[in-house]
Simulated scan of single mutants.
Amino acid sequence: MKAGRITWVLLMAVTVSGAAGYLAEYSTVSSNVNGRELPICSVETEDAKVALTFDVAWENGDLPEILDVLEEEGVKVSFFVTGEWAEQNPELLKKIRDLGHDLGNHSQDHKSMTQLTYEEKREEISEAHERVKEIAGVEMNLFRTPYGNYDDEVILTAEEQGYYTIEWNIDTMDWKDYGKKNILNTVMGNEELGNGAIIRAHAGTKYMAEALKPLIQRLKEAGYELVPVSKLIYRTDYHMDVRGRQIKDEKNN
């Protein structure tokens, strides 16, 4: 098993009785399990929090309604947008930002990342990053792969560019257009629903906007606080299990 990313943060030098002393903080971050790189699919936490996320790549006719519902319910979520979508919808992009939601990278034009060369992978991530930065002034650091397709090189390439790769452990299945009731049952009846769950939804599906308010209300009634991914994941001192569950390392005192 690889050691993972290792970060040395040198703090200021201090002088005590003429002797220079240096303090260093040692932290480890590993996304490697049994020789395989994994994305963050959920988070181990004692807090009753879940993250609701939306992939935004093509149709967005329901996005204003989704944003209205989120505002009414006082909920912040994470939107993973393609660079191409951002270019075509600058005002909606800025509105997502202004309402306080996460903006995450969903690649430039939604290609399957595992089918690309290393350089093409880098370009898909960096182009989307620059588009969103130019339009909304946001430096994104959360990445979701198109179609949920990833391999070691995809995750490491995103990491090289300062990104945490975020997938999910609960899919609303809204993209199947089976109806509002199906979305609610799929999430609320999912055995993976629990503290630290990451739920995937989409903008532009037939029933998600209609299902959103009752879904949020049911999650709240079940005792969960809905937070954006940026408020759920650990940034340092963690490792992953085989399910892509992020686990905080215990620090030795």
Rank of each mutant, 00 (worst) to 15 (best):
I166N: 10
R144G: 05
Y224P: 04
N190A: 14
E130M: 14
V154M: 04
I170H: 00
Y207S: 02
P146L: 14
A158S: 12
A203H: 03
P146Q: 14
A209M: 11
Y118D: 05
T165I: 04
T172K: 09
E124F: 08
E130Y: 13
E153R: 07
T114F: 09
E160Q: 02
I155Q: 08
G204C: 07
Y150C: 02
V132N: 00
V187G: 01
Y224D: 01
G189Y: 10
T145C: 11
D109H: 14
G189V: 10
T117I: 11
Q217Y: 03
H129T: 15
T172P: 00
V227F: 06
L193P: 04
E130R: 15
T114M: 14
V187N: 02
N195K: 15
T165F: 07
I135E: 07
L212R: 03
R122T: 12
T157G: 03
R144S: 11
L116D: 02
L184N: 08
I170E: 02
A211M: 11
A197V: 04
F143M: 08
V187Q: 04
T205L: 04
M113A: 03
Y150Q: 01
L193I: 10
L226R: 02
N185C: 03
D171P: 13
E119M: 11
I216F: 12
H202V: 03
Q161P: 00
Y207Q: 04
E127D: 04
F143K: 04
N149L: 13
V154P: 01
K180H: 00
S126W: 06
H129G: 01
G179C: 09
V138I: 15
Y207G: 03
G162F: 08
A203L: 05
T186K: 05
K213S: 05
R144T: 05
Q115H: 12
N182Y: 13
K176H: 05
M188Y: 00
V132T: 00
K220L: 03
E119D: 15
A201I: 02
I216L: 04
D177L: 02
Y207W: 11
E139L: 07
T157V: 15
S112N: 15
A158K: 07
G194I: 01
T165L: 09
G179S: 11
H202R: 04
M113D: 03
M113F: 06
P228L: 11
K111G: 06
A209W: 08
